[in-house]
Nucleic acid binder design. Structure first.
Length: 187
DNA sequence: TAGGCCATCTGGTCCT
DNA sequence: AGGACCAGATGGCCTA
């Protein structure tokens, strides 16, 4: 945790100091010509408190940046964990964030469909599932299009409609392939 | 070089 | 008041 913070702090300080202190606020304040009247009205005490306020604001911003960074890191960790439980792609292409979410969505849907069908078919489910077409080529189709979100038909369909007819077939096969590959003995 | 993806910063809003 | 969450902006890196 400390290492993370120290790394982040040094990193963010550069960025922040460059942009916020000197660029953003600095330029904003200096770029907008301060009216003479305000200059005259401003007293030393007042100016000092303004500076203090600026320091407080900056510290708050830095803390908020740290929290936001940690929040995003946690989000990414969760995403990695999700990738870890999804079937791996043959070419080991790392799924992008959106691909991971869409694939997980479709995969969960396919698994639940598999369970539902198995329940409907009772004791014969094992035999029926065993008859599923070989998923090998379909499994490859996941990854062949996995590098581009705009061209990944297997899991880029609308997440809101996982039951889209065009998704059903290979998704179920993918689910079966994933189950058989990563949970040996489940069938 | 354009486009995609990502990390980070930032300000606003909501919640406790 | 302070933290969490969110969305927009920005810049870097990588690939076709």
């Amino acid at each position: 945790m400390d290492s993370v913070y120290s790394d982040i702090d040094s990193n963010s300080c550069d960025f922040f100091c460059n942009t916020d202190d000197e660029d953003s606020r600095g330029s904003v304040r200096s770029a907008s010509p301060e009216p003479e009247q305000q200059k005259k009205k401003r007293r030393r005490g007042r100016a000092r408190s303004d500076a203090t306020v600026q320091v407080v604001k900056k510290n708050r911003r830095l803390k908020a940046n740290d929290r936001e960074r940690n929040r995003m890191h946690n989000l990414n960790d969760a995403l990695d964990a999700l990738r870890g439980v999804l079937p791996a792609f043959p070419d080991e292409t790392k799924l992008t964030k959106i691909e991971t979410l869409r694939f997980a969505h479709n995969y969960i849907w396919a698994l639940s469909e598999t369970i539902r069908i198995a329940d409907l078919q009772g004791g014969r489910s094992g035999a029926r599932l065993g008859e599923a077409p070989s998923p090998g080529s379909d499994a490859c189709s996941w990854s062949s299009s996995g590098s581009s979100s705009s061209s990944s038909p297997a899991y880029s369909s609308s997440p809101g409609s996982p039951a889209a007819p065009e998704d059903y077939g290979y998704l179920q096969q993918d689910a079966l392939f994933g189950l058989r590959s990563f949970v040996p003995g489940i069938f």
